[in-house]
């Protein structure tokens, strides 16, 4: 397999703030590569540089051998971008939006009309094509948003957290469409802070935190880093309880790491069965009521916690 994307030591600074600190990775043609990291990790900034929207402070990347800094216009012809926020004209119809964005990618005449018709089929909006986007549900708007990125049949598709803020049904539809696009040969760079999405979709995952790529590999390779460790997720009614428990559980026998996020504590343990009893007994001693407990096999959440000392959802 050849690399369609090669990223070399990409840096983006805003004054004293270092948003991206020398990120390097490759994506092979035909794979789905996920950038997994919490909010503010530098995922969107990285995609913005790769899609030539932002100029990197230093470093470079090439898409199909073409430099993003030296030949941005050539790069733009090869890539499709599905931004995190909906980037559509709500007072135009779905059809008018697709026509406009197709024209921005240089499509004209019959080829434009043909592609718009194909994409409308693909996103299952043929019946609503002549309705204004502002009349659509959130899921339908997301589909148009994705459709725009597909119009010119890009070699590499950047999808920046495309499932944020939508209902489970629409999320399912989007994940299925990403898989379908990949089956049809499209290479996808997918960013998310949902571990489940990265696990379901990706051939390989890059874990990014505070502007640094802290691990890259297949899911198997990454989970190997945490060995046979398992994860307990304790859910509480009060977020204060979670904070208190996270600090306290770090000292409990068998617990490797514990970190609070919202109303839950993620606890990395060697053996879930062995650690469960002391963890529960400690919560009872502190008089904190546990709502529920999940036990997970080694996963990307555990990898993230292992590498950064904090939960992915933070």
């Amino acid at each position: 397999m050849t690399n369609i994307l090669e990223v070399h030591n990409l840096v983006k600074n805003y004054g004293d703030f270092h948003a991206v600190k020398g990120v390097s990775f490759n994506i092979e043609e035909g794979e789905i590569f996920s950038l997994l990291g919490p909010n503010g990790a530098g995922k969107t900034t990285t995609i913005s540089m790769l899609s030539t929207l932002y100029q990197p402070t230093s470093g470079d990347a090439s898409i199909d051998g073409i430099s993003i800094t030296r030949e941005p216009m050539q790069v733009r012809k090869l890539i499709g971008v599905v931004p995190q926020e909906l980037a559509l004209y709500e007072d135009l119809t779905a059809y008018e939006n697709l026509i406009f964005w197709g024209q921005m990618y240089g499509l004209t005449g019959k080829s434009l009309n043909k592609r718009v018709a194909e994409v409308l089929e693909q996103i299952d909006l043929v019946d609503r094509a002549r309705n204004r986007v502002k009349t659509f549900s959130g899921g339908m708007k997301r589909r148009v948003n994705i459709g725009v990125g597909l119009l010119h049949k890009p070699r590499l598709l950047f999808m920046d957290e495309p499932t944020v803020g939508i209902d489970p049904q629409s999320r399912r539809a989007i994940l299925d469409s990403v898989k379908l696009l990949n089956e049809q040969g499209m290479t996808v760079l997918y960013t998310t802070h949902y571990m489940e999405e990265a696990q379901e979709l990706s051939d390989r995952v890059g874990i990014i935190d505070s502007g640094e790529m802290i691990a890259i590999g297949t899911q198997k390779e990454l989970t190997k880093q945490v060995g046979e460790m398992e994860t307990l997720v304790l859910h509480f009614d009060e977020s204060d309880d979670a904070e208190k428990m996270a600090k306290d559980l770090s000292n409990v026998n068998g617990v490797i790491k514990a970190d609070a996020s919202d109303h839950a504590v993620t606890v990395i343990v060697h053996e879930a069965e062995e650690a469960l009893a002391p963890v529960v007994s400690r919560t009872n001693e502190l008089g904190i009521k546990v709502r529920s407990i999940d036990i997970h096999e080694p996963n990307l959440e555990a990898v993230f916690l292992h590498l950064t000392g904090k939960a992915l959802r933070n």
Partner: peptide
């Protein structure tokens, strides 16, 4: 929408 136009050619 403006950034989106700017990542098109």
């Amino acid at each position: 929408t403006l950034p989106r136009i700017l990542v098109s050619p």
